[in-house]
Amino acid sequence: MVKDKTHVTDSRLGERTGVPAVKKGTQDPMEMDPMPEGSTPFQAPELSTRREAFWLAAGWGVFGWAGLTSVGMLVRFLFPGAPFDPAQVFSAGAPEQFPNNTVSEAFKKSNQVWICNQEYEGQQILFALSTICTHLGCTPNWLDGDQKFKCPCHGSGFYANGINFEGPAPRPLERFRIFIGDDGSIVVDKTKKFQQEKGEWADPDSYIPAV
């Protein structure tokens, strides 16, 4: 036999809270009046006076102004006013500044580039090496005594020609595009890079023959 649930009353709840027990199932919950007698339901206060209208307008005005300003700041933030990056294309001076079998650190700090004049595959060439270690992006140091680049983070080592030979670096340092400008000085273009493992070091744009 199924128990008829419509007439079960929750008397215990009524005892505890003082609210008269409601017969469960006899009424649609939406129709029940949850208010105790004597109270009035919530009503939005009417905008009866001009003072209230003023404060409402002022509040929304401040809120809107703050919102618009923050959106404006966000948009402004996307367009930095002063580019702090050094020029991607820069002149490195006359080729005679870089004698044979040297590594120049003159542009390491300003442009993150080493200008090397080294022998590579039987040819004396000038090329621009990136100062970013191909392992995890630290800046290696040029050790003149050992004639190698050595990374302080995980001990990767590179020969003066940029080839990796010790430590975990998986590939040689990257070269940048280099050419002789109209005024006869070396121009380095960092927007184009050349990776040895992709065979790009054969590209004549990646080096200039040393004199």
């Binding site: 700090k109 993150q112 990374c151 302080p152 983070c153 001990g155 975990p168």
Partner: peptide, 26 residues
Amino acid sequence: AALTPNPSKAPWYFLGLQEMLVYYDP
């Protein structure tokens, strides 16, 4: 950007990971 401290050490609790990086690809 032009100068990495030498030696450049991770926080102590990551030094085991840094030692692993010496032997394997990143």
